[in-house]
């Protein structure tokens, strides 16, 4: 109870600051629209090559995961700025759970991502997306789970390094291979060696899972995708909580 109250206080504070900055709210909402409008049309003629009937059913799940990864992976920059302003240290000398300090922040990233995802999917229907309703719900849930994991990871790295100069190259070197190997923009169908490498990337399975579930199919691909989303989130949340609880961080 105490923990949830503290988490809520941190979350509400972050939300208030975020909502007062309309620039970020607008940028957050425009991003998915730009992808849909400027990149989507390129994929329409290609969709048949990947055996898909509807280009957007193939494309939107990838966009969702990309949003989940990139919107939240840079959360650590905000944390470093807060550290510099003394906010993190001031919160750490209160009796509040240090895990709540992390999860309250991650909760804001998750809510932002949820709103962005809903906007993206609703707009996609205008472009001609056809997808099953339960599939969309599970797809967005997996996206938010992955995004929350990335935010935990990013905040923890931010707290450990306390430096944008460490954070920027590190996050970029993580995000680019993940982006390419997950088949986010184009499904990985060949060559074989690339498929083998991609198979060890959890996000690839998450993308595959969301793609499948969007068509209304609930098969093992979907369950594996869900499994990996939960595993990635659990690992990042555990590690993040440990970093925040460390006495010397």
């Amino acid at each position: 109870m105490q923990f949830l109250r503290q988490l809520w206080i941190v979350f509400r504070r972050q939300l208030r600051i975020a909502l007062r900055n309309p620039a970020w709210v607008i940028i957050g909402l425009v991003q998915p629209i730009l992808y849909l409008a400027l990149f989507g049309p390129l994929l329409v003629p290609l969709a048949g090559t990947f055996g898909a009937d509807n280009a957007y059913t193939l494309f939107v799940p990838g966009l969702l995961v990309q949003l989940g990864l990139f919107g939240t992976l840079f959360a650590g920059f905000g944390l470093v700025a807060e550290w510099r302003a003394g906010v993190i240290e001031a919160e750490r000398v209160t009796p509040a759970s240090r895990t709540a300090l992390l999860f309250g922040r991650v909760a804001l990233n998750a809510v932002q991502l949820l709103v962005q995802s809903i906007v993206l999917v609703l707009l996609s229907f205008l472009f001609g997306l056809q997808a099953s309703a339960p599939g969309i719900v599970l797809g967005i849930a997996l996206t938010v789970l992955l995004g929350a994991a990335c935010a935990c990871f990013s905040d923890a790295v931010g707290l450990l390094s306390k430096s944008e100069n460490v954070l920027a190259p590190l996050l970029n070197s993580v995000s680019l291979p993940v982006l390419l190997l997950s088949g986010i923009l184009l499904p990985i169908t060949q060559p074989q060696w690339l498929k083998t490498v991609a198979d060890v990337v959890p996000t690839k399975h998450i993308v595959d899972g969301i793609r499948t579930v969007f068509t209304g199919t609930f098969d093992s691909t979907v369950w594996w995708g869900s499994f990996w989303a939960v595993v990635v989130f659990a690992a990042a949340a555990t590690w993040g909580a440990r970093v925040f609880q460390r006495e010397n961080a």
Binding site: R13, R16, I17, R20, R84, A85, G86, V87, E89, A90
Partner: peptide
Amino acid sequence: SQSGSTSPEAR
């Protein structure tokens, strides 16, 4: 603390 305790953007 010497480094402050509030976000410049908060109230």
